[in-house]
Design a protein around this nucleic acid. Sequence first.
RNA 1: GCGCGGUUGGUCUAGCUGGUUAGGACAGUGGCCUUCCAAGCCACUUGCCCGGGUUCGAAUCCCGGACCGCGCACCA
Length: 596
Amino acid sequence: MSEGNSTAGGNTEGRRLAELAKRRGFFFQSSGAYGGVAGFYTYGPQGATLKTNLEEAWRDRFVTREGHMEIDAPDVMPEAVFEASGHLDTFDDMIVECPACDATHRADHLIEDATDIEEAESMANEAAMEVIADHEVGCPSCGEPLADEPVDNFNLMFGTNIGPGDAAPGYLRPETAQGIFVEFPQLAEYARNQLPFGVAQVGKAYRNEISPRKSLVRVREFTQAELEHFVDPETDEPPLERVADVELPLYAAAAQQREEGTAVEMTVQEAVNEGVIESEWVAFYLGLAAGWYDRVGVDMDRFRYRQHLPGELSHYASDCWDAESEVDGDWVEVTGFAYRGDYDLTNHAAHSGEDYDIFKQYDEPVTVERPTVDPDMSELGPTFGGEAEAVAEALADLAGRNPDAFEGNTVTVEVDGGERTVPVEQTGFAVEEVTEAGERVTPHVVEPSFGVGRLVYTVLAHAYETDVVDGEERTYLSLPSALAPTTVGVFPLMDRDGLGDRAREVATQLREAGLAVTYDDSGAIGRRYRRQDEVGTPFCVTVDYDTLGEGDSPDLAGTVTVRERDTTSQRRVAVEELSETLQSLRRGDIGFGDLG
RNA sequence: GCGCGGUUGGUCUAGCUGGUUAGGACAGUGGCCUUCCAAGCCACUUGCCCGGGUUCGAAUCCCGGACCGCGCACCA
């Protein structure tokens, strides 16, 4: 395992996959002519189509069939967006370098370990340096004192400038989600202000990872397919009955802390009933997604849902589960399911000053008694001077929380840590009857966030099969028909006697019908089958002498051989029914065994 | 980012105690042959990661860089 090699993936599975991926055009490191760039991959002809097909399958399941909307926001967004989202702070690591051994460490982590300070990340760099010096913090690797070593910032976001000069800093988005949150006011309008509604986006995200690793698993530019499902936290409930009986392999936080290595199978309903999954919305999506993973070719025996440990949770999430697939003995996070609450919308509202909530109209207007204040500022002004405004606000706040406080002759509020007492008659306190047509609700958001590249990697790894056909070892990709880059290979048995011309006609006919077709007349027929096996083409069609009516079986005129990838078994199908039959096979409407 | 190991046609690899026309396998192209699973024959295309240095001479030794793998760190 420690032996080096020139291709990605250290273990057997990863190596063989990387080798096949490069040789057959699924994916390879980009800019290879210039030495390559770490963390950037190009999807070749097969891989780009596979990825597109996977995205299309995602769209079909999580957008179209759920009735959600899809948008396409820019990759570059201004700094203010990431100030609001928290990425400017939390994506920004405080690092300090050891003068002796050159190892880099998180300064905030060192401080938290050495002192009682809990949120060291929010410290200024200079303050962090002082703490390190005062507490004589040493390098965890070699023990060298780190006093006087500069504390620097490393931001995982790629920065750029919008327009000339550096007056308008922008960043490549580190997640596609913000493009949805930022545009929420517009999107709510398109949803006619009716909760719940979902907004999806498939697009690129960028993270300047310190150390990209493991092929497509950790890269600096990657595709996310994200759904932000906005719900009313008070009234909206997921349609749990649709997925109640779906079995989920759940690896809960408690089991991880007990160091039990395996997930436990239980249904969505059981997981909710037993409180294993806290959020019913998250539970719904775990159930919905489980069937989808299976359909796109994830080996469900090498799959689990793992709950985040308490210390692992993101700054915004209350409960989070990852879908993980096993490749080469490692678990790869392919999707994060998070209940983000109203964190994002609230922050964008606060930073932008725009409305990020929804007015929910009642069926019937309701009349409520509402305590109000109307302070007499001509009295409060002279009494409290510059604090008068703050006192007035505190009174309004108190009236809403505790109207009983206004029952005496005076009322006391706290301003700037000091108590201020005001005669009630100066507060203008009253209880008014107000008719309300509805209320404002800040939606909560449920977020399934899929890593498309990691799914492509998983699906390829799980589809990789070998067997023996006629004494020869064979490699094939057992990709689902709907995902395979090519649906059908068309061959003449040999390229002579008009077989090639007839085969080319068949290929054209299938292409016209909308199928992805590869035509191949090079080398022996077996070789051509193997070529298609290696890129996962589910079906091959061969034109032979019988097709032309020149073979031993005149009744087979006008028919071709259709051969199935995984079993290598063959059936005869009439040319005029061929495109229809292959379409049905691709959709899964019929199985290969259903053919005559 | 640190440490260790590595990088040879499209792919996998031999060579790496300095002097080879850099070898093989697979793949690919053209041709012959071939009536359904990588057959055979002929011919051909394609390579020492990049930049310095040492040397009469470097794929081979030294230095720097890029990239890959593993470990550590990192992974809101």
